[in-house]
Design a protein around this nucleic acid. Structure first.
Lengths: 351, 351
DNA sequence: GCCTCCTATGTTATCGGTATCATAGACTCT
DNA sequence: AGAGTCTATGATACCGATAACATAGGAGGC
């Protein structure tokens, strides 16, 4: 494997000139530049960025930790991030934490050994050790999906509380009166807590009876079947329930399938709403009402924040809140009920 | 940022001893080891792997290039890859090429600068320059999804020809006689060519009339609408067509939706089959017959091959062919037609 | 008790670049 | 023509680790 020294020797110059040809070509005579380029081509020279980064003190690498890649939300975020980073000449290093914060901490540690220029995390739930490690490191960090009151550094997301509030209001507006929210466990999970908050606030504001949140526990295995089981349990326990709002489209789709099997008409007998706006919600019948979340945009924005920070730009955007959108579809669209237009994020009252 | 030298000074030893504590602890007295560990903790020392890699000559990094992350297939492959690599202490570097081989070449070049220990590519379609660059570099390379006759190095995938053949046979078995295959452009695309081959071979073997392949051109924008348009065009042009086999579930789902809108009964009037076994095919009504492809397994296997190679193990598994599965669902299940059980990969005649 | 061998640790050189400062020659200006 | 200023290139040191060899001290054998 040829090194810069060999290229230099062949071109009859020193390493330094070769280095300049690569990173400051305008500082080198066109003539020399050509000779060096020729030598590089002849030897098939590929610069060693490991060595370069060592002196330069910047690796050109951005690391991202997501819970899993098998969820289109996170994949979308990474795609958005990747596009922005690529355009800025930065590389993307990816880790999947499997929703485990302890594992995340280990991963952060091993990631820091590679001296990334920035780190993108998913969610706000990190171990105390991880938080202090990152703070001490002084590395640009973007926490995504949830927006923090006290982020480690920067954050991009949307308001889970407002989104859950808005979707619940949409159910109310569609004529549903006995609404249950199906959520993941709220301990240690800011997102679940905020959504539950938003729902209960909407129920209160609408003057309806607050029903207990139905908690499903196998969050890591987010599968349709879980939603199916949940709705069966709920309707068996309280037949007067007329709408179920799931914290994920995956569950909601499972619920629709279960209702279809059981002959329970959706949206007439029971309205069903989801969260995330996944593709499956668009093709299922009835189509699924849901909250569109800005997955791709979160990634893009995270990338832009990082690029700006690395360029030494202002930090005034260190907390960014993006919009969501309430998508009203068939699964909550009772005929005969007068409805207003679906809400969009900017019409939502800030709570 | 503390360096190894500072840790050494604080612990009253030399850098070399600190280095040993990190990578060969058994070579160091428990006593010294403890003192060094204490010093590392006190300083908040995080080793610099950039520097380590430079001397050690191995970066512990595996790079993967996928067309996009927004397709669950590739995300699944990366997830499988990531899991195996993580277990082996390797990191994952990801690039999205956007289906453009010229961009891929640029990315390969910039990836090589980071001196990864191995590279995972998607597909076999690479520029000549990229191929020779990789060959010269002598880096372990795994080409995924399509299995090559002459891979750059290693490859993992499944047989697109056999899969397309099997699905077509399944349509024949279900009683369809006038079958059209909807494919992407086959020029410069091994995968599309192999699938078309498989279909036409099955048609021939069944003694049916070979209809021209319907080619959709906007492959990069794989969207349901494209499939809807395709089936409308086809049925308008030749009303006797009784089954359409799409090269992607996305298209097939669009076709089902279009048929639903147009009042064309599926599977009675027309059978519809897809490829990939995406989640949407499971929830749409009628459920979609499709070919299950081993996305996650491809990633895992690629990871295993890399780990084995880096460990210096045998190379006898440099080409690996995984199985696929024919999933017969409602969209091709005409009532009244006697059918055998769905085929699985190992029952498929090798063609 | 002396020699050998092993073990824990130290010394030195090096990995492949880049930052920094030095220098020679060309060019401008008076 | 001489002094000052640029410009292109070179020389040197260093980034933060590890490999390879060196060495001191203790254990074991006779």
């Amino acid at each position: 494997m040829p090194t810069m020294a060999e290229v230099a020797a062949l071109a009859g110059v020193t390493k330094m000139t070769v280095s300049r040809v690569l990173r400051r070509p305008e500082k080198v005579t066109p003539d020399t530049r050509a000779r060096v380029a020729e030598a590089m081509a002849a030897l098939g020279y590929v610069p060693n960025r490991l060595a370069g980064s060592l002196t330069a003190g910047t690796s050109g690498l951005v690391a991202a930790i997501v819970p899993t890649l098998r969820h289109s939300l996170f994949a979308d975020t990474l795609e958005g991030l990747s596009a922005v980073l690529e355009a800025a000449g930065l590389g993307l290093f990816v880790s999947a934490s499997g929703y485990r914060t302890d594992l995340e901490e280990t991963q952060i540690r091993s990631i820091l050994e590679r001296r990334p220029d920035a780190l993108v995390l998913t969610g706000l739930t990190h171990t105390a050790a991880a938080r202090s490690l990152l703070r001490n490191f002084g590395l640009p960090v973007v926490e995504t999906w949830e927006t923090a009151d006290e982020p480690v550094d920067m954050s991009v997301g949307y308001s889970n509380r407002e989104a859950a509030f808005a979707m619940t209001m949409e159910l109310v507006r569609s004529g549903y009166r006995r609404i249950v929210f199906v959520n993941g466990p709220a301990e240690n999970n800011e997102r679940a807590r905020l959504r539950a908050d938003g729902v209960s606030q909407a129920i209160r504001q609408a003057g309806l009876e607050a029903l207990p949140v139905h908690v499903v526990h196998d969050e890591a295995a987010i599968r349709p079947e879980t939603g199916g089981r949940a709705i069966r349990t709920l309707l068996a326990g309280d037949p007067a329930i007329d709408a179920v709002f799931f914290t994920s489209d995956i569950f909601a789709v499972g619920a629709i399938l279960a209702c279809r099997e059981d002959g329970i008409p959706v949206p007439e007998r029971v309205g069903i709403a989801g969260f995330h706006d996944l593709e499956i919600g668009r093709v299922i019948s009835p189509t699924l009402s849901t909250v569109h979340v800005p997955a791709l945009e979160i990634g893009r924005k995270a990338g832009e924040m990082i690029v700006a920070r690395l360029a030494g730009h202002a930090l005034d955007t260190s907390r960014h809140q993006l919009g969501f959108e309430i998508i009203g579809r068939q699964s909550t669209m009772r005929s005969g009920v007068a409805r207003q237009n679906p809400l969009t994020a900017d019409k939502i009252p800030v709570t």
